[in-house]
C-alpha cells in the first residue's frame, strides 16, 4: 500500500529535505522527522521522509537469520 523509496538526505532547510535516490532528486517534507541531517538515509513516502534507515537490507537479513538460527 505504501510505496517507499530509500534516499539519501542532501540538504535540510526549514521543514524540507532535498533527497537523492540514484541521482534523482526531490524536495520532500521533513516535518515528520525533526532531527534529519545531510548524509542520513531515509524512507520516503508520498513526498515525506517517514523514517530513518539505519542499515542496508542485506545487513538486516543477515542479522535476522543469525538470530533465528542461534
Amino acid at each position: 500500500m505504501c510505496v517507499g523509496l530509500s534516499a539519501k538526505v542532501v540538504k535540510v532547510s526549514r521543514g524540507t529535505a532535498l533527497v537523492d535516490a540514484s541521482g534523482a532528486r526531490r524536495e520532500v517534507s521533513a516535518a515528520l522527522l525533526t532531527d534529519l541531517e545531510p548524509g542520513d538515509f531515509v524512507m520516503v513516502h508520498a513526498g515525506a521522509a517517514i523514517a530513518k534507515i539505519t542499515q542496508s537490507d542485506e545487513e538486516e537479513a543477515s542479522g535476522l537469520m543469525e538470530g533465528l538460527l542461534s
Binding site: L5, S6, S22, F41, D57, E58, E59, A61, M65
Partner: peptide, 24 residues
C-alpha cells in the same frame, strides 16, 4: 523499492547471499 542508495552503507554481499540461501 530501490535500495541502491543504501547499498553503499555496506557491501556485505557474501553475508546476504547466505542469508537468502538460508531463508530459501
Amino acid at each position: 523499492m530501490k535500495q541502491d542508495g543504501v547499498k553503499t552503507m555496506n557491501e556485505k554481499q557474501g553475508g546476504t547471499q547466505s542469508a537468502i540461501e538460508m531463508a530459501r
